[in-house]
């Protein structure tokens, strides 16, 4: 799946990263607890979260994630956008809830970090 497809599937908008729409992603993780995200060292490409603060971008950075999806209509602030820009991480927002967002992406082939 590409980042562009994620935007389409989630009826979302790109907050940052128009230039990286062709990035391929295969795995994702959905959580509002950053320590839970950090509990798995395996590469995961997409982070879905309802949490909005700079530590979300930093967590994605530590995990080598390529894309963050903010669910439930949450919007990252300018500080977070600058941080993501500096680290080449795509930011997407969607009005869909976490459950629905994860479900739609899973149905289209995106998998959890364990590959299941």
């Amino acid at each position: 799946m590409t980042v562009k497809e994620i935007v389409e599937i989630l009826e979302g908008t790109i907050v940052y990263g128009e230039d990286f729409l062709d990035r391929e992603v295969h795995t994702a993780c959905g959580s509002d607890m950053m320590s839970d995200v950090l509990a798995y060292v395996k590469e995961q490409a997409v982070l879905l979260t309802g949490l909005v603060n700079p530590q979300v971008v930093r967590t994605a950075e530590m995990m080598d994630m390529k894309c963050i999806v903010f669910v439930r209509g949450k919007s990252p602030d300018i500080g977070m956008i600058n941080l993501a820009e500096d680290r080449d991480i795509v930011l997407i927002k969607t009005d869909l809830e976490m459950f629905t967002s994860c479900g739609r992406l899973y149905a289209k082939g995106l998998r959890g970090g364990s590959g299941k």
């Binding site: 607890m33 320590s35 509990a39 949490l51 530590q55």
Partner: peptide
């Protein structure tokens, strides 16, 4: 509320 404080910090550090 920042996404930390779940009691996973030190266990995560030890794990890696």
């Amino acid at each position: 509320s920042l996404g930390f404080g779940a009691g996973m910090g030190l266990p995560n550090i030890k794990k890696y």
